[in-house]
């Protein structure tokens, strides 16, 4: 029967020791342990949230970078295209300019030539006239007496001479 009846002495000791144990544990063990565990859990939760946030930020950053890269690429292409066009235009312009220049030079050369030719022709004409005159003078001096008549005749002859 005493197996299932509480014993007074043991009950007193149990009450004493258990209460003391509870107070000591609650104050010096459970409080710091639970605080530390809670703090750590909070820290982990915060770290996870931060990681999630950073990941999202990274995602956004990456998207932004991609966008920037895309724009840059497009811009580069544009610039290249423009440059090519400009170069082409320049070459084309240079070409046409050169052609023009060349044409001009040729033209001026032709003009020069023709003017030189004209001058030379006039010179030649004069020369020929003088020569003819001299010839005629000499001829007429020898043959003719009347100068005026002779000269008119000589001019007529000279103009009849075609130089081309």
């Amino acid at each position: 029967m005493d197996l299932i009846l509480p014993d007074f002495g043991l009950l007193v000791w149990t009450g004493l020791v258990f209460s003391l144990l509870f107070i000591l544990l609650a104050k010096f063990a459970w409080k710091p342990i639970l605080n530390a565990v809670n703090a750590r859990e909070q820290k982990i939760a915060e770290a996870l949230a931060l990681a999630e946030k950073t990941k999202a930020e990274m995602q956004a950053l990456k998207a932004e970078n991609d966008q920037i890269l895309k724009t840059a690429r497009a811009e580069r292409d544009q610039i290249l295209k423009e440059a090519k066009e400009a170069a082409n235009a320049m070459v084309e312009e240079a070409k046409s300019k050169a052609k023009d220049e060349a044409t001009k030079i040729v033209e001026s050369a032709r003009q020069n030539i023709s003017s030189e030719k004209a001058a030379a022709m006039a010179d030649l004409k004069n020369h020929v006239a003088t020569l003819s005159l001299e010839i005629a003078e000499k001829v007429i001096r020898q043959e003719l007496t009347a100068d005026d008549k002779q000269k008119a005749l000589a001019d007529q002859f000279a103009s009849e001479i075609k130089l081309n």
């Binding site: 000791w13 149990t14 020791v17 144990l21 544990l25 010096f28 063990a29 710091p32 703090a39 750590r40």
Partner: peptide, 25 residues
């Protein structure tokens, strides 16, 4: 009872000391 309680006290105080010394790690 006293031995058991001392054992629990020693174990739990050393666990608590770990956290007190190292913080929430």
């Amino acid at each position: 009872l006293i031995i058991g309680s001392l054992l629990i006290l020693i174990i739990m105080l050393s666990v608590a000391r770990f956290y007190r010394k190292n913080g929430a790690v």
